[in-house]
Design a protein around this nucleic acid. Structure first.
Length: 927
RNA sequence: GCCUAGGUGGUGGAACUGGUAGACACGCAGGACUUAAAAUCCUGUUCCCGUUAAGGGAGUGCGGGUUCGAUUCCCGCCCUAGGUACCA
């Protein structure tokens, strides 16, 4: 019997499912290993051939780790709350739960076709009440906590209340809102319940406050910063505006420093680490106050270059800055108002795009320089952003290019502050020289100046060293239906939690999935939906990232009703050892997950500072579109004649997308093309060499470009094992690459060769019990070593090649010895589990046991070669091959090489300066 | 602009810490088997010069450098992809 992928794969997929072969054991005598894929959002389009890339890689790694004796946790689930299901519900009226369930079924079917070793008994869906109960529970913990800077961790709010009751607000070091009150213990106790709650809200990690949000009118919801790209929504590309709203937020900024420090402890791809670093955006500098005596206040600025403070020639506020109104003099009022009006009208997009024109206006007021006491003009300009730092900057034209341009434009003074500065043409920010024009820091170096200035500013109470972060708190509420309800109700306008034992707070039914007439979110439509029949529930739902920010814990203990996961399970599985997924989640999911992980650790629920120890970004698989060229007639109208790529320049043509599924190795299947659409039945072709060659282009995979390839089709034609091997063979895992099937035949041929090693020429199964030869052992141990090394460094494509070499060698040797073949298929099992399982049982082993067999032990002795030829060069040139026995020491090698007649001839009596040895071989002779 | 990754045959890509560049596969060309096709197998395939051959030369984006020896390390530049953007 020849290799029949269909019957083999169906048989084993059924066996594995029926026997729960990949159910993760709860034993603890084996070391654990946790391999996780980023779980998919089940979209209506189903999987295309790009989706499984990462899953195949993680499956190979999981299976490899099982063979290496690890207890492997390799689960899968669905991130099933999300916008598309809701949009679809708005259009069709169908409940998102129904479409989501249907999509999940389709996904599951497609995934099962590929033969993954997921433990499906641990499947989770974020939209199931059993799951989101715990997402809500975590929200409750976040609401019930504050961040204590002294202990550098989150603590229960009770510890804060206790401090308020004993010492008031004075000694509290907390991450909190800016406008917290100062009070004594007695004052606190005298506060009303409402006043106390209002104050505590400013400290909670999940908190409610009025904040400027990214409002997307078209989607009817707010968006997080990472969901906004260039002023447009990530989904749909709709315009996004700034709007003030009461919103739930997460105090992720409290964790900014820990999130940053943690990056040094994890094994993640450098670009991703860099993205998170930039997103967090730590800058070290100082906060400086410029007194405004006439208003009895200060303008506080943030600067990374305090040392340039004597170069300050003006101060600039963002147009939205709170003090602008008070600072504007009557004379300047009209001009300032006009300017504010103009910038307010500009969208975020315009404001970002327009970075070249210099604009700004003088307020008419002056501030005092904190050190010299001189008057400094106060300006407003839109290059200063309200959202960063304090929304105000001290302008140092000599050291900052934007300030320089601004000063030139408005004819403001430019003061050199360093003897090494060249400010003829542009600002010069170097820190090399000694200070000039700088009062008491004249003559000092950069570091000396910074230290002296910080000291001085602290003494004057007009400044201090400060660290600023670019990262903002994360907006947590969405005005949407298909998400987790926030377990909060309102009493007297203040939020209160529902009790933990009342969880889950179920998502109520609504008649429509649109906002109410009064503009409330869809949940406002739910009837009789009140807490204790009287209090209004929070109507916004949680954002998409809520459910995915802790899901790896749930897999550890997916059905637990008492905890998000049992303590023993969490203690055993700890954190994810290997996480595979796309880099598009760099500043979203991957940051929020780290945040929640740290938070849950602070509350003592586990002990791991980081959730994902090692992370691999699989590259996107792009579509490779195929084109045919339709010939145009004299009037430029399309005809039904199509010309092959190589001849198209002889005609006037337009390219048309053609379905890639009827193109093989860029050759169009003419019959399939003709029957694809009625209008093509009579199509005429201009061929080259009897073939129609299509043009190609790399584009995103999408239906409209006819370049979507469904993995089911590949599995049907070549089998899951071929698909798995081929996706790995395509190139390095991390690299983006276009999908094409040009080389898939080679992989399929390889599997057939493997099959034939076990079968005689009549196709009957046959292996020999003879003792293998040296050469056979050598071929086997080469692949054992190579496969092991390659998998450990995630170089799957090179190990597929190595398997091909090995099988070619064994075929050449006509090797059908059990001792060799059995080990070979164990090593191959992670890549091609179905064919190896079949061969494993043909060899007489129990079904379902190959996945837990022992990975063969590599023996280096088999690779030692007794005699071989190798090239020796002279001065890097004139290479020649010399035969040589290797079991010799360097001394002997040296003698033999130098005695060689060819070498002697080349040396021509010249003295040898140096011999270069590599691994006991002379590789080069220097003369 | 800044940050990060990358640039190797007709194609996808190998070369793990500097040591025979182009493994493996596709494609292509030629051949065997076959009435024929499919399948399978064999041979060749970086480029240039050399009638075949023996042989020689060039060659890993470009220009330099270090080294006996550089795809690999260093300096400068060009290009591509991804991220980011008035962040004080």
């Amino acid at each position: 019997m020849d290799y029949n992928h269909k019957s083999i794969e169906q048989k084993w997929q059924k066996f594995w499912a029926d026997n729960q072969t990949f159910k993760t054991a709860e034993t603890t005598d084996k070391p654990k290993y946790y391999v996780l894929d980023m779980f998919p959002y089940p979209s209506g389009a189903g999987l295309h051939v790009g989706h499984p890339l990462g899953y195949i890689a993680s499956d190979i790694f999981s299976r490899y780790k099982r063979l290496k004796g690890f207890n492997v946790l390799h689960p899968m689930g669905y991130d099933s709350f999300g916008l598309p299901a809701e949009q679809y519900a708005i259009q069709t009226g169908q409940h998102p739960a129904i479409t989501t369930a249907a999509n999940i079924d389709r996904y599951r079917e497609q995934l099962d076709n590929i033969g993954f070793s997921f433990d499906w008994s641990r499947e989770i869906r974020t939209s199931e009440p059993e799951y989101y109960k715990w997402t809500q529970w975590i929200f409750i913990q976040l609401f019930n906590s504050w961040y204590n800077k002294e202990t550098d961790r989150a603590e229960l709010i009770d510890t804060l209340i206790a401090k308020f009751e004993t010492t008031g607000s004075s000694n509290i070091k907390a991450e909190a809102d800016d406008e917290v009150l100062s009070f004594t213990a007695d004052q606190w106790k005298a506060f009303s319940e409402e006043e106390q709650q209002r104050e505590l809200l400013k400290y909670r990690i999940a908190y409610l406050r009025e904040s400027t949000v990214n409002w997307c009118a078209a989607l009817g919801t707010v968006l997080a910063n990472d969901e906004v790209i260039n002023g447009l929504s990530e989904r749909g590309g709709f315009p996004v505006e700034q709007k003030k709203m009461m919103q739930w937020s997460m105090r992720i900024t409290a964790y900014a420093d820990r999130l940053l420090r943690g990056l040094d402890t994890i094994d993640w791809p450098e670009p991703l680490v860099e993205m998170q670093r930039n997103w967090i955006g730590k800058s070290v500098g100082a906060s400086v106050k410029f007194p405004v005596p006439q208003l009895d206040t200060n303008i506080e600025v943030f600067t990374t270059r305090v040392d340039t403070i004597f170069g300050v020639s003006f101060v600039v506020l963002a147009p939205e800055h709170d003090l602008v109104d008070a600072l504007t003099t009557d004379a300047q009022r009209a001009e300032v108002d006009a300017y504010i009006d103009k910038t307010a009208k500009k969208s975020e997009l315009d404001r970002m795009a327009d970075t070249k024109t210099v604009s700004g206006v003088f307020t008419g007021s002056y501030a005092k320089h904190p050190i010299t006491g001189e008057d400094v003009q106060i300006w407003i300009a839109d290059y200063v952003l309200a959202g960063y730092g304090t929304g105000a900057v001290m302008a140092v034209p000599s050291g900052d290019q934007r300030d320089y341009v601004f000063a030139k434009h408005f004819n403001l003074p430019i003061i050199a502050i360093s003897d090494s500065q060249n400010i003829e043409e542009a600002a010069d920010a170097n820190k090399e020289g000694r200070y000039i024009n700088s009062g008491f820091i004249n003559g000092l170096t950069y570091q000396e100046a910074v230290d002296a200035l910080i000291l001085k500013l602290e003494e004057l109470k007009l400044g201090k060293a400060k660290i600023n972060f670019r990262m903002r708190d994360a907006i947590f509420g969405r005005q949407r239906y298909w998400g987790e309800p926030v377990p909060v109700y309102f009493k007297n306008g203040l939020p209160y939690l529902i009790k933990e034992e009342e969880l889950p707070l179920l998502l109520p039914s609504v008649d429509k999935y649109l906002p109410t007439e009064s503009g409330e979110p869809p949940l406002g439509r739910a009837e009789n939906w009140k807490y204790q029949d009287q209090y209004d529930y929070e109507l916004s739902t949680m954002p998409g990232w809520a459910g995915s920010s802790w899901y790896w814990f749930r897999y550890m203990d997916p059905t637990n009703e008492k905890d998000f996961a049992a303590k023993e399970a969490v203690d055993y599985w700890k954190s994810v050892d290997l996480y595979i997924g796309g880099s598009e989640h760099a500043t979203g999911h991957l940051l929020y997950s780290r945040f929640w992980n740290k938070f849950l650790k602070d509350l003592g629920y586990h002990n791991e500072e980081e959730p994902f120890k090692k992370l691999i970004n699989q590259g996107m698989i792009q579509g490779r579109s195929s084109f045919i060229y339709r010939v145009l007639d004299e009037e430029g109208r399309g005809t039904n004649t199509y010309v092959s790529l190589g001849l198209k320049d002889q005609y006037n043509t337009i390219p048309l997308h053609v379905d890639v599924n009827i193109v093989y190795n860029d050759v169009l299947d003419l019959e399939k093309f003709k029957s694809s659409r009625p209008e093509y039945t009579d199509a005429v072709f201009v061929l080259e060499d009897g073939k129609y060659i299509c043009g190609t282009e790399v584009e995103k995979m999408s239906k409209s470009k006819f370049n979507v390839v469904n993995p089911d089709d590949i599995v049907d034609q070549y089998g899951a094992d071929t698909l798995r091997l081929y996706e790995m063979f395509l190139g390095p895992l991390e690299q983006a690459k276009p999908w094409n099937t040009n080389g898939i035949e080679g992989v399929y041929k390889f599997l057939r060769k493997v099959w034939r090693l076990f079968h005689d020429t009549e196709g009957n199964f046959h292996v020999s019990e003879e003792e293998p030869t040296k050469a056979e052992y050598k071929a086997l141990h080469k692949i054992i070593k190579k496969a092991e090394d390659d998998i450990e460094r995630f170089s799957f494509n090179t190990s597929v090649s190595a398997f091909m070499i090995c099988v070619n060698e064994l075929t050449e040797l006509k090797c059908n010895k059990r001792a060799i073949l059995q080990d070979l298929i164990i090593v191959l099992e992670p890549y091609a589990p179905h064919i190896t399982e079949e061969l494993w049982t043909l060899l007489g082993n129990d079904a379902g046991t190959i996945s837990y067999a022992s990975f063969p032990k590599f023996n280096p002795d088999y690779l030692v070669e007794s005699e071989f030829a190798y090239p020796v060069s002279i001065n890097g040139k004139m290479k020649m091959n010399l035969p040589l026995a290797l079991d010799l020491d360097n001394k002997a090698v040296e003698e033999i090489v130098l005695a060689n007649a060819d070498v002697q001839r080349y040396l021509d009596g010249k003295p040898v300066k140096k011999l270069i040895f590599v691994k006991g071989k002379i590789i080069n002779i220097v003369i």
